[in-house]
């Protein structure tokens, strides 16, 4: 059971218009209609956000939801001045923690998958059990712990727990994948004199790039969107991540809708860029059949 098994579907070679014509002939049109309906309402808030982000106050008062001219792109400059710092902080936090998390999780999962060391299942259960523990239970003691460690209001207060917590799910997924890799390949490498480390670095990791990508993306998504932990552990505006930064930004710009909405748009761009480059990993990773009970 690996995420990789879902091969990308062979995409039929035909032009888009031909596809639409065929959709009409085969009676798919009402499915398209239904999907358009759903998608319209799913995207409506975003479309309206973009429309409002180009308005000044008067335009919003008179025609709040339709496109008005002249457009006011300077809203974006105003929002960028404030939001850019939060975006940078989020990139630093999620970036550092995802690198650390993937390295540690890959090493641990490799150990669990390929070596029958004494206590393996016990240790693995020790990791898995944490999947059951909700964040609510650990929130308060973890807060007091980082307070005692003097980490409050530093970058590490986010990064260290994100690395620790993110590993759990990643180890679970990666172990399954590593176990399914054909063992003969590693035997061959060992007979040729490769060390354990070389086997891991030069065979294991290259074979697992896409699953590592899936795990990394899921981690970035969850850390990027975290609200409560940064909210209780960060005080200074210089360190705030995007989520709580936007929250503060909303209070500051309340009813100045143009720049506010521009800020929301800017805030969404980094993940959309990430998605644009890795959409295949997103879609394949989630729809390959590996995720079910």
């Amino acid at each position: 059971m690996t995420v990789l098994e879902g091969q990308p579907q062979p995409i039929q070679r035909m032009s888009l218009t031909e596809g639409w014509r065929r959709a009409w002939r085969t009676g798919d049109w009402w499915r398209h209609l239904g999907l358009f309906g759903f998608l319209f309402f799913m995207f409506l808030p975003f479309i309206i956000t973009i429309i409002i982000s180009f308005k000044d106050i008067h335009q919003f008062d008179h025609y709040p939801f339709t496109v008005t001219f002249p457009l006011h792109p300077e809203n974006y400059l105003e929002a960028w001045r404030i939001v850019s710092r939060y975006i940078l902080n989020s990139i630093i936090t999620s970036g550092t923690s995802v690198v650390g998390m993937v390295i540690l999780a890959a090493i641990a999962a490799w150990a669990f998958a390929r070596y029958p060391f004494p206590g393996r299942e016990l240790f693995f259960f020790g990791v898995l059990a944490l999947l059951m523990v909700p964040g609510e239970l650990t929130l308060i003691p973890a807060f007091l712990l980082v307070k005692d460690l003097g980490l409050l209001n530093t970058r590490w207060v986010l990064i260290a727990p994100y690395i620790a917590g993110g590993q759990v799910f990643a180890i679970f997924i990666l172990r399954q994948f590593f176990e399914a890799l054909p063992g003969e390949m590693f035997e061959a490498a060992r007979i040729d004199g490769a060390s354990e480390l070389q086997v891991f670095r030069h065979i294991g990791i290259p074979l697992s790039q896409s699953i590592l990508g899936v795990v990394a993306i899921m981690h970035v998504l969850s850390t990027w969107n975290d609200v409560i932990w940064p909210l209780v552990t960060l005080r200074s505006n210089e360190l705030m991540t995007l989520t709580i930064g936007l929250y503060a930004f909303r209070t500051q710009f309340y009813t100045i809708w143009g720049p506010l909405m521009a800020g929301y748009v800017i805030a969404s761009i980094p993940l959309i860029i990430l998605f644009a480059f890795t959409s295949r990993l997103f879609v394949e990773g989630l729809s390959s059949g590996a995720i079910k009970m």
Binding site: F46, W224, N225, V227, L242, T243, L246, A267, S268
Partner: peptide, 8 residues
Amino acid sequence: PAVVPGIV
């Protein structure tokens, strides 16, 4: 839409 940050 799942890529748009939850807070937004």
